[in-house]
């Protein structure tokens, strides 16, 4: 039920992000969501794209080190308290969120948030029981 996310290792020097976006543009890859985690020396660029396998190949070709991981794309009601409800559910179960960021597109009345959480299988089950919708890779791409 996860969606594939690319993580690209980037040194903190000017022009590197541009190199990534250019390589993806040339491969005709569309970026759907992204976030950056950084330290003093380097950053990790996390990407959700329309074609993860092809994007990974294009980036590797351009000399980047890329890791592929599964994350959850969770529908969040686009209203006050929407995100709070979902995070409350996880907090009650003591499931930690490693990181999260927003997806560009929408699913009907819902926003989509990308989550990386521990004990993902368990989390999915609990969220579904509470009526939270989790999108598959195909569903996400069809938006």
């Amino acid at each position: 039920m996860g969606v594939k996310q690319l993580s690209v290792f980037l040194e903190n020097k000017s022009g590197r992000l541009a190199d990534v976006t250019r390589a993806l543009a040339q491969a005709n890859i569309n970026i759907r969501a992204l976030s950056i985690a950084d330290t003093i020396d380097y950053g990790l660029l996390r990407l959700i794209v329309n074609d993860p396998e092809r994007a990974r190949a294009a980036l590797a070709e351009a000399g980047f080190t890329v890791a592929l991981t599964e994350v959850l794309a969770i529908e969040v009601p686009d209203k006050p308290g929407g995100l709070a409800n979902i995070i409350d559910i996880l907090a009650k179960e003591a499931i930690n969120i490693e990181y999260m960021y927003a997806f560009v597109g929408r699913s009907g009345e819902h926003a989509i948030v990308i989550f990386r959480i521990e004990r993902a299988d368990e989390a999915v089950q609990i969220l579904r029981e509470k009526g939270v919708r989790i999108l598959t890779g195909e569903e996400l791409q069809s938006l």
Binding site: Q5, S7, A37, D38, L44, T65, T69
Partner: peptide, 8 residues
């Protein structure tokens, strides 16, 4: 690739 993951 063996070192890089999605987490800093």
């Amino acid at each position: 690739p063996r070192i890089v993951s999605d987490e800093v």
